[in-house]
């Protein structure tokens, strides 16, 4: 933390600790304060042991009948919850339908603002603590603590309610706070892409982006594909 120079301290009663800059404060707030924001396993666990095998930190263990997660040790990346086939892992900082409701809220905003196209963007709060990675009126951003926690159904849901595209911003693999977040984003995007292909919506409406240039390319592709075929009219999200 920046401090007042010693010379100045001699002649003033001003605060010695000058406080954090905005970016420093955001980084500092990300430190683990053992807030218990991690995952827990409920009674629907099928004991598939998926969570034991994929947790980047090796936290889940096999209990008497089901998997068990020590919430005080869990780093709360949410990757296990996205991968649990029985949806038996709950995240204490995110309800089951929270993301769905957020997507509906931003799509309601898109309906009022009526951009030419509406793209839902998911970004990682740890990678971009100061806010969305790109400033663009056509992108409606939703933040998550690690985008590796996005399930395939959550990636494709925006299309059901009229979004024209979905983009996900992720960390480079060696920058990921949760070690394997970027691997899981890529994996979930691939699976979601397959569903979009099968349903005829088009897998190209989905993309991982890292900068403005990526989005420009994606935007051009969307223009060629036209609006989401699930839109009933020209209006966004209608």
């Amino acid at each position: 933390m920046p401090v007042l120079p010693v010379e100045k301290r001699k002649s003033t009663f001003d605060e010695v600790d000058l406080g954090y800059e905005r970016e420093q404060a955001c980084r500092e707030a990300l430190r683990c304060l053992n807030c218990g924001a991690g995952a827990s396993v409920d009674s629907h666990c099928a004991t598939c042991l998926n969570c034991l095998r994929i947790c980047p930190f090796g936290i889940p263990v096999l209990g008497k009948e089901t998997a068990e997660i020590d919430i005080s040790q869990c780093q709360a990346c949410g990757i296990c919850a996205a991968e649990c086939p029985a949806s038996a892992i709950r995240l204490s900082n995110e309800g089951k339908d929270d993301l769905r409701q957020e997507v509906e809220q931003v799509m309601n905003r898109a309906r009022q603002e009526t951009p030419e196209i509406a793209v839902i963007g998911y970004y990682c709060r740890y990678h971009d603590p100061l806010g969305p990675p790109l400033d663009n009126d056509e992108i409606y951003w939703i933040a998550r603590c690690c985008t590796g926690r996005l399930k395939e159904s959550q990636i494709i849901y925006p299309f059901e309610i009229g979004a024209d595209g979905v983009i996900v911003s992720m960390c480079l693999s060696d920058e990921c706070r949760f070690r394997q977040g970027s691997y899981w984003v890529t994996e979930h995007m691939k699976r979601a892409g397959r569903v979009l292909k099968e349903t005829g919506i088009g897998e190209d409406r989905l993309s991982v982006i890292s900068d403005e240039e990526d989005f420009t390319g994606f935007r051009e592709k969307l223009e060629t594909m036209g609006i989401n075929p699930l839109r009933k009219g020209k209006k966004v999200g209608a």
Binding site: H44, A46, C84, P85, A86, S87, A88, K151, E152, S153, I156, Y157, F159, E160, V195, E198, T199, G200, I201, L230
Partner: peptide, 15 residues
Amino acid sequence: GEKQVELLASALRMA
């Protein structure tokens, strides 16, 4: 499982 049910339901509705 539940995860697959959710995904299939969404895919069928969209298709």
